[in-house]
Design a binder for these strands. Structure first.
Lengths: 154, 154
DNA sequence: TCCCGGCGGTTCGAATTTGAACAAACCTGA
DNA sequence: TCAGGTTTGTTCAAATTCGAACCGCCGGGA
């Protein structure tokens, strides 16, 4: 076991800041979405992804790989959203095992309804707090962080 | 309702990056801690805070305000950790309602044991991925984000 | 002294999350 | 054609989370 390289002051401040911001932002987002739209953050993310997907549908696995949650977690959420009429399941014609999650019109409407408030909160808690230069650094740095982590199974 | 100011490309990239990194980093951290030390990330955070506190003890409320989780969530975790012998409850002499969470020697030992692996992972997923300049921007920018959010009740 | 609003923690129930186990279908190579 | 390993999505039990309700206690003012 090599000698531990502890974090110096600069590194510690960055790490603490990241961790705290991460927790607080997520909490706030969840709260705002639930209060204003009755959607959880994971559910909102699913709607966004489906809305952006060609044909407004995605395979369960693709959806899970996005980042949201584990496979089983996704199954749960999609089931909930299906009950709420926001999403519909469609079996894949070329692979019997496969399942598409399809965005319904109701789901699309719900998303459009929730989006403005969500964006406003995103600005309030993060985007409008930072300068354009800071935003660029964030995009580049954290983008790389995410890229390196993506692909690991959970 | 004012016109919605949607996110431009730069803002979107920053936001996506932040969100993805946040989720992925947290997932990875949780996994590493659990695998190597049998601690959850919340539990690790509690140990760190207590270790840094004068007398190695903190009031429940102070601990909850840190950021971890809701009051009830903290009650749950402290109970778990008490069962595991990592922490002990001590009632506050000057206020019957008050409760201190106190770090035990076992808790302290457990933390020292877990820390090297944790720090290594923190470096691997974030700190060593970024340049010193990026770390500074992160610390400053996200520090401000956190500061603005802190103090809201969950 | 007594009353009342607020604080500190816990308890409760409901919702959500996760990993492991599972069953079925797919695909590759012999 | 067939065996074997892999992929897909679901099910299951267990752990964790949250918010709301709750109880007892604190402190200030009448």
């Amino acid at each position: 076991m090599a000698e531990t390289r502890w974090l110096n002051d600069r590194e510690m401040r960055a790490w603490d800041g990241f961790l705290a911001a991460s927790a607080l932002v997520n909490r706030r987002l969840d709260q705002q979405l639930k209060d204003d739209s009755g959607l959880s953050h994971p559910q909102y993310e699913i709607l966004v992804r489906l809305a952006a997907a060609p044909g407004r549908e995605l395979r369960m696995t693709e959806l899970a790989n996005g980042l949201i949650n584990s496979k089983s977690g996704l199954t749960y959420q999609v089931t909930q959203m299906e009950k709420a009429g926001l999403v519909r399941r469609r079996s894949c014609p070329s692979d019997v095992r496969g399942v598409f999650a399809v965005l319904t019109n109701a789901g699309s409407a719900r998303l459009e309804e929730a989006a403005p408030g969500h964006v406003a909160t995103v600005r309030e808690v993060l985007v409008d707090v930072l300068t354009p230069e800071q935003l660029d650094v964030l995009a580049e740095g954290l983008g790389e962080v995410g890229r390196r982590l993506r692909g690991r199974t959970g």
